[in-house]
Write a protein that binds this DNA or RNA. Structure first.
Length: 559
RNA sequence: AGCGGGGUGGGGCAGCCUGGUAGCCCGCCGGGCUCAUAACCCGGAGGUCGGUGGUUCAAAUCCACCCCCCGCUACCA
């Protein structure tokens, strides 16, 4: 089976925070899982770098948008690398392949008759010489009198507004008074696809409940045409006749990145012909990891665009949408510095600790909350004590009592039984991941560690070693092989630690594919044994975070 | 306002779709073990599952209404 695994493209006007990491990590766990199962995987994402907020951020910094995104893209790519995200291609929307692909794609949709033009009126800032998105017009709310209401909504009374409703409207960038100007835009005829989309959503059983219900209710309410173009300078030039000076709206191009990134991947490999096999293949499935705010783009607009291209691209097999992550009960906020940003996170703890905790609290059924106390408890009690200690007690036992060499012994019935139970847990892990229940999978994985601890306790090999050597041998061989199997499963969640474990166990290469996870190995000479994890302390972590921020050690702290 | 999600022992969560003795982690109490990172294992106390009414032999689970919290509403991305 071929798999396209993708996570939503982070918008890189700023360093992403932990909320973004959820999607990125989820997709990585899934991609690693597929590879361990032996599937053919192309795992892609990239930086979403066009649009007004980046243009404005660049103005604020006094540099060009390209200079800004060049810097941010390399910074963010590096962060994902350090988090162990195994992208086959992490690209960007400025990539020439993407730009060319988007333009050709839309021309095709245009020629297929799914795009029309329409004149609209929009506020324009004569000072900044740009049309202003609704959000970038500020003025007095006509309902409650709030003076800093945005053109799309008043933040005080919550009413939805049109920018022209505002009293005394101002440009959010420079404060000048905007004027109403006529402008022409190109629209994608989304309503035309309502029927097909409904059929697609209803027949797609993998979709999470939140994605299905939201999509269906939107179709039920009636879809509207979506404008494809913007009057921004910073973006991909719209290819339509008469659209000179217009660019493609970021969302409408960024979703196509899922396709162009795979194309680019194969071009880079020197096998461009494999792109079609992948994206149009009958045995290809695609899965997208996103937050619930992105659902309509992935379940409606993106599939409709793929249909409209009439190119035979496979429709999304699953849109693995999650709820939101809160930080100590509040929304992440850059302005108020509520949250933790990715570069800060890595300054505090190794990537695997974050990978562990973020998957542990993955917001699968409802908004989840990041809490220091909870994170510390989970890391100390489960990651360190349950898992880390099992590994250490088994390996150090082999070190001290067996000179570091796993005995070449037969397994007795009880040992066989334990490994059989472990295999059943492994099957449940796989089953959970198939259903994209990643937190269940991680919890099942911890169950393997509990099984190991129970087994080691009840078998008391420290006693057998004197009184019943064969029994101790069996315990040791079984425990060692449990760890070996665990390393394979750990590898998808915590790749760095799993690889370290593998080396400590004296095994070659990297943790085995699932098909070999339970092949019994004996006679191995262990490597250097040391604790895999350590406990963490809340106060120390918080102090460290303060330091990192005060010293401006990471980019997000300086923004 | 509309739509969506949530309200389960002290804390954090699962279970609800496919009704039938309420499960997990932490914390608390007691015991065991000493190989291990004061780690591990076993046992126990603690919840009438937001409220009211209904369906049913039986409801945390289905239905109706109500209360509270959160999010989204498509030219912010």
């Amino acid at each position: 089976m071929r798999w396209i695994v993708a996570s939503a493209w982070p918008y890189i006007n700023a360093v992403p925070h932990l909320g973004t990491l959820i999607q990125v990590l989820s997709s990585d766990v899934y991609a690693r899982y597929r590879r361990k199962k032996g599937d053919s995987v192309v795992f892609v994402s990239g930086s979403d770098e066009h649009g007004t907020p980046i243009e404005i951020e660049a103005i604020r910094k006094g540099i060009s948008p390209k200079e800004l995104t060049d810097k941010m893209h390399s910074y963010v790519s590096d962060l994902f690398n350090r988090f162990g995200i195994s992208y086959d291609n992490y690209t960007r929307t400025e990539s020439p392949t993407h730009v060319k692909f988007v333009q050709e794609f839309y021309m095709r949709v245009y020629e297929n008759g799914h795009i029309f033009e329409k004149e609209t009126e929009q506020l324009y800032c004569p000072n900044d010489k740009m049309f202003l998105p609704d959000r970038f017009v500020i003025g007095t709310c006509p309902y409650c009198g709030y003076e800093k209401a945005h053109g799309d909504q008043c933040d005080r009374c919550g009413r939805l507004l049109n920018p022209t409703d505002l009293i005394n409207p101002r440009c959010a960038i420079c404060g000048a008074e905007p004027e109403l100007r006529r402008t022409k835009h190109w629209f994608f005829d989304l309503p035309k696809f309502s029927g097909k989309l409904k059929e697609y959503v209803e027949s797609n059983e993998q979709l999470p409940d939140n994605a299905r219900s939201m999509s269906l209710s939107m179709i039920e309410d009636g879809l509207k045409p979506r404008s494809i173009t913007r009057d921004n300078k910073w973006g991909i030039p719209a290819p339509f006749p008469g659209a000179e000076g217009k660019t493609i709206y970021v969302w409408m191009e960024a979703v196509l990145g899922y396709v162009s990134a795979v194309k680019e991947y194969f071009e880079r490999l020197g096998k461009p012909e494999e792109f079609d096999e992948f994206w149009k293949g009958k045995d290809t499935k695609s899965i997208y990891f996103i937050g619930k705010d992105n659902i309509p783009f992935h379940t409606l607009i993106f599939p409709a665009l793929l249909m409209a291209s009439e190119e035979g691209y496979v429709l999304p097999y699953n849109v693995a949408s999650t709820e939101f992550l809160l930080f100590e009960g509040e929304k992440f906020s850059k302005r108020e510095r509520i949250g933790i940003w990715l570069d800060e996170a890595l300054a505090l703890l190794p990537a695997d600790y974050w990978r562990f905790y973020m998957i542990y609290i993955r917001p699968e059924t409802k908004d989840a909350n990041f809490a220091w106390d909870d994170m510390v408890a989970k890391i100390n009690d489960e990651l360190n004590d349950t898992l880390g200690n099992l590994i250490h007690r088994v390996l150090s036992f082999i070190k001290s009592r067996y000179s570091g060499i796993v005995p070449d012994a037969q397994l007795d019935e009880e040992s066989e039984e334990m490994l059989k139970e472990a295999k059943e847990i492994a099957e449940r892990i796989e089953d959970s991941i198939e259903r994209v229940k990643l937190r269940d999978a991680l919890k099942e994985f911890l169950e393997m560690a509990r099984l190991g601890n129970r087994f080691f306790n009840s078998r008391e090999p420290w006693r057998d070693i004197r009184e019943n050597k064969p029994r101790a041998d069996s315990t040791v061989v079984a425990s060692f092989n449990l760890l070996k199997a665990m390393a394979s499963y750990m590898h998808i969640f915590m790749p760095f630690s799993a690889e370290r474990l593998w080396r400590m166990m004296g095994l070659d290469g990297e943790p085995a594919p699932f098909s070999d996870a339970f092949n019994i190995v004996t006679g191995v000479q262990l490597g250097e044994v040391e604790p895999l994890f350590h406990k963490v302390n809340k106060e120390e972590l918080q102090e460290k975070l303060e330091e990192v921020r005060e010293r401006g050690e990471v980019l997000s702290a300086r923004e």
